[in-house]
Structure formats: C-alpha cells, structure tokens
C-alpha cells in the first residue's frame, strides 16, 4: 500500500477570474511540480481561495487554462476532477459515522465492500484513528475531526490534495502539532498538496515552495528560506515574518546604491547591539535607537524603538544574548551587516 501514490503537476496559464467587475485573480501563472507541497499565502481577499476553488471546480475561470497532469480540467465537473480537499471547518457529514465519512469517496467510486474496508482502515490508521470508525463527528475533538477530514480527502488516492486553511479553527498548540503531522502524511502519501493559508508560520514550516499573493496577483514564488531571506517587495517582506524597512537615503553610510533602489529590509534578529569592545568595519550600518516599548515573549524579548528619523525599528533578542536589561527610554546603538539586509525592488 505504501508509496503507491504520486502527485500530479498542476499548471496555471494566464488564469483570470472576475466577479462582476472585481478582479479576484489575474495573470496567474504557476507550475506546481509533481508531489510538491506548495503553499499559497496571502491576506484575506488576496484571491488565494479563489485559486483553490478553481482547481476544485466550484468556480470557473474567465480566461486562461488549468491543467492537472497533462489534462485540461476546464470541461470536467467537480466530481470528475479526482482531487481531494480538506476544508477549514472540516465539513464532515454530520449524519454519518467516521467510517462512513471516510468511505464516502470510495462508495461514490463504486468500490466493492472489501476494498472499501481495506482503504478506510489504511486511511484511519494513517491519521491514528483506527478505533474511531463507529463514532459520530460531533463526538470528536477539533483535531480529531481534522484528521478524519484528511483521511477522507486522501482515501481514494487523489493525485492532488487541496487544503483550505485546514488548521484555522484549531488553537495554537494543536496547530503546531498538526503541521508536523501533515508534513509526515505528505512524506507518506506523496501527493501534490496545494495548501492555502494566511499564516506565514504555517507556510514556512510546511512548504517546499511558497506563493505569496496579494490583490489577485502573485508577488513572489520561492522556497521558504529564500522567501524569508530575500523578500522581493515591501509587501513580501512585511507579510513573512517581522521586518524593518529602512530608507536607503537615510543610511548615511558608504552604502553603494547601484540601481537607485529606495528601501532595504532587515530582519529584527539580524540587528546586533554594539558592545564596548566593538570593532567597526565598513560593511556595517549603525543605527542610534531609543527604546519605546518592550514586549516580553518568553524566550525572546522584542524591543520596539525609534531611530533618528522617527522610523519604528524592531529588535529581537533571545534572553541569553542580553547582558543587562534595558528600560524604556534607553538609548542604544545597533548595527547590521549590509549583506544581511535585502534590497527591495521598487
């Protein structure tokens, strides 16, 4: 049974979707590789769910084409597209027990009883709920329901699995646990997963690649590390993690600005506090800050400061890094290496 599943590629070519005159998705080009875990990340209204609904066939694009593998899905009704889907509110059928919920896709495909029993057992085993077949959905916790929804979505071995903010309804602890589980499931079943979320942490943890969307357009596509280290625009930098965006002209340093770009992004953890025995070199930029607010986060302390130009600068330090505590109003000097910053394209 193991490794019998492989994902299909999903290709978008110039896809556009309008609702009346509002453009939900435009100029959408994306090639999702076979068995890839891709996350579409964006704020609400960015069009990310629209993309998912177009793959599922709940809505039809106004222009462009979508292919699963080599097949154009334009003329296929939803039930013939053979994709699995996990919904935000689980959407388990309330009148069916867990076994019947998971068996539903198999019954629709007219498998015989024996096959159904085997496949359902495999799927429930995968999500660690093999003894729950006779329970009703309302007897399970949120995390268990989500696992059932996952089992139901993959039981018929779809080549493509869609997940629409599947962890949105769970609390933080459980969310983190489920992220790891989902990653493990993906290792096991190898289908292509298209995962929609507005949670950047989830996107960074889970994905092979992240697609950042805003206002119906793709802003950036890259792997999590590159997305975090090299955001392409102000929006991308702000949306993934926290960042400080500085105006290059304000940095009165020997900074060589070749392309006349205006802004540089520097992550809070890359700012270092200048100690007494600090040796300056020319690749460093120094900022003089006044601490305006201190946020205690447990393992990390966040300092919200102002620089000389009244820009807000955020500084994050693990507690072991700080030799002595700072107070609000303290003046401190920090520096960063120019290589640690990312120049944002205009």
């Amino acid at each position: 049974m193991k490794n019998t599943m492989y994902g299909d590629s999903v290709t978008f070519t110039n896809v556009e979707k309008k609702y009346n005159e509002t453009i939900a998705v435009s100029n959408f080009n994306l090639k999702i590789k076979e068995s890839e875990f891709i996350t579409i990340l964006g704020p609400s209204g960015s069009g990310k769910t629209t993309v998912l609904n177009m793959i599922a066939g709940f809505i039809t694009q106004n222009a462009g084409s979508i292919q699963i593998g080599k097949t154009s899905i334009h003329d296929l009704p939803t039930e013939k597209r053979n994709v699995g889907m996990v919904f935000q509110n689980y959407s388990l059928f309330p009148h069916m027990n867990i076994f019947d919920n998971v068996a539903f896709p198999l019954k629709m495909r007219k498998l015989n009883k024996n096959q159904i029993n085997n496949e359902v057992k495999y799927a429930l085993d995968l999500v660690g709920l093999k003894d729950y077949g006779l329970r009703m959905p309302n007897e399970l916790s949120g995390g268990q329901r989500q696992r059932v929804a996952f089992a139901r979505a993959i039981v018929f071995k779809p080549k493509v699995l869609l997940m629409d903010e599947p962890l949105g309804a769970l609390d933080l602890k459980l969310r983190e646990k489920m992220q790891i589980e989902i990653k493990n499931y993906h290792e096991e079943i190898k289908c292509t997963i298209i995962y929609v979320t507005h949670d950047q942490g989830e996107a960074l943890t889970l994905s092979d690649r992240i697609v950042i969307m805003d206002q119906g357009k793709i802003i950036q596509i890259d792997n999590p590390k590159n997305i975090y280290d090299n955001p392409i625009s102000k929006f991308a930098a702000n949306f993934i993690g926290e960042t400080n965006i500085l105006n290059i002209e304000d940095l009165k340093s020997n900074f060589q600005n070749i392309n006349n770009d205006k802004f540089i992004s520097i992550r809070p953890e890359k700012l270092k506090i200048i100690s007494n025995n600090h040796i300056k070199n020319e690749n460093q930029v120094i900022l003089k800050l006044i601490i305006n607010q201190i946020v205690f986060l447990g393992d990390v302390i966040k300092y919200i400061c102002f620089d000389e130009n009244q820009n807000e600068i955020i500084l994050k330090k693990t507690r072991t890094e700080i030799e002595n505590d700072f107070n609000i109003g303290d003046k401190i000097q920090v520096y960063f290496n120019i290589n640690d910053g990312t120049i944002l394209k205009n």
Partner: peptide, 22 residues
Amino acid sequence: DTTLERAARVLGASPFKAFWFV
C-alpha cells in the same frame, strides 16, 4: 452548511448524489 455539498462533490458525488446522500 453548503460546504457539505461542496465536500460531497469534490469527493466524487454528482450533484444529485450530493443532494441525496448529504
């Protein structure tokens, strides 16, 4: 919850079957 019907559809049910079973 109309997503229940959507869920049935995407899992392989025709519109009539989605109505009938869900």
